[in-house]
Design a protein around this nucleic acid. Structure first.
Lengths: 191, 191
DNA sequence: TATTCTCAAGACAGTTATGTCTCATTTTCT
DNA sequence: AGAAAATGAGACATAACTGTCTTGAGAATA
């Protein structure tokens, strides 16, 4: 691995990207460069020294999120285990990407679409397809719908309940998505 | 009922709000007044004749969405039926609000928060609480988490798959949320 | 200590969206 | 048809953000 010394420039660039992810995930698209700079604790001009313009920063952020998501999903080895276990790993990977994923998903309408699809949606669709052929996943819903549902679920929880931590969020999302909210087996109310 | 003649002003105001809902749901917060005006087929100045400033338009839109959601949830009579049936009705109500709900949910971080909570989240939480005491809904997840999950699910499907229609979307969301994506009962893959 | 690099702070111009206003034209209502 | 109201088009000033630049200060390196 390239665990080279984290040079100053790299550290500042990372801080700016992190602050941008937070600001964009919280305040949405209309977060200004001044907001990002303030959140990162640097001057506005410094941001422009690292990223020539706003779009470049957004692109860098999207690229980072894509690479992070790809790496986590690759390490998850979704193809090595059955669909339910793979799903839990996938959710853990997505939750681990955190705010970067929220930003990436928010910008997936923009011109640079496809990135989100290739890095996140496609592996999920493949996972659901395999789960369906193996009999682990219900077949009355398309892999596309299942993927969108899972993404919506993750995003909703990720944006509204950031206090659960990675494992807590993963457990909630996985359990709910796989088994649903209905009580299983037990008798309903004695009507 | 006050089914008065739909005066001209009311019709234009409704058209502007509808266009604003579409534009804001599609292009997010950075949709300009010019975008809204173009989408509504009116001049930019006309928008300002109906809403003194951008914030007033956003407030009107949020108020409309809140009233719409409240009315639909009230008509759904969630308290009159068991939790699973009530959940389906609630989902149908939320889906029926459509893009207005997406906009309202996106702005729930803003100063005028609470509106979304009072109109949408609170009824859902009450529904889940009742479902848990009746034994219809699993109790290892809080009503708050269940509510956030359901909202995330609805929003995700609503924004990414607008072609299913109200009934299709309702069926998908309800079934998935109640019973999950896992195959029920059938044997897993023959390993 | 001297040199070099980087940063913070702020001034500056260019661009874009906002909000106001006017005026000729069109639409609505009587 | 005629009066009243509303609209479209566009000019206009204002505000906010963007992107560039300069200056003085601070930290790293030799």
């Amino acid at each position: 691995m390239s665990t080279a010394p984290p040079s100053l420039r790299e550290r500042v660039a990372a801080a700016i990207l992190e602050a941008a992810a937070d600001a964009l995930a919280t305040h949405g698209e209309q977060a200004s460069i001044a907001d990002v700079a303030a959140a990162a604790g640097v001057a506005r001009a410094t941001v422009y020294r690292y990223f020539p313009n706003r779009q470049a920063l957004l692109d860098a952020l999207a690229g980072l999120a894509v690479r992070d998501a790809e790496a986590r999903l690759r390490e998850a080895r979704l193809d090595d285990v059955a669909a339910p276990e793979a799903l839990e790993r996938a959710v853990r990977a997505l939750v681990g990407v955190g705010n970067h994923l929220v930003v990436l998903e928010r910008e997936r309408v923009r011109p640079d679409a496809g990135q989100f699809d290739a890095a996140v949606a496609q592996p999920l669709r493949r996972l659901f397809e395999r789960g369906q052929t193996d009999g682990d996943i219900r077949t009355d819903m398309s892999p596309v719908s299942l993927t969108e549902s899972l993404v919506g679920l993750v995003m909703g929880i990720l944006r509204s309940t950031p206090t659960l931590g990675v494992e807590g969020t993963t457990a909630v999302v996985t359990s709910l998505f796989l088994d649903g909210a209905r009580t299983r087996g037990a008798a309903a109310h004695p009507g």
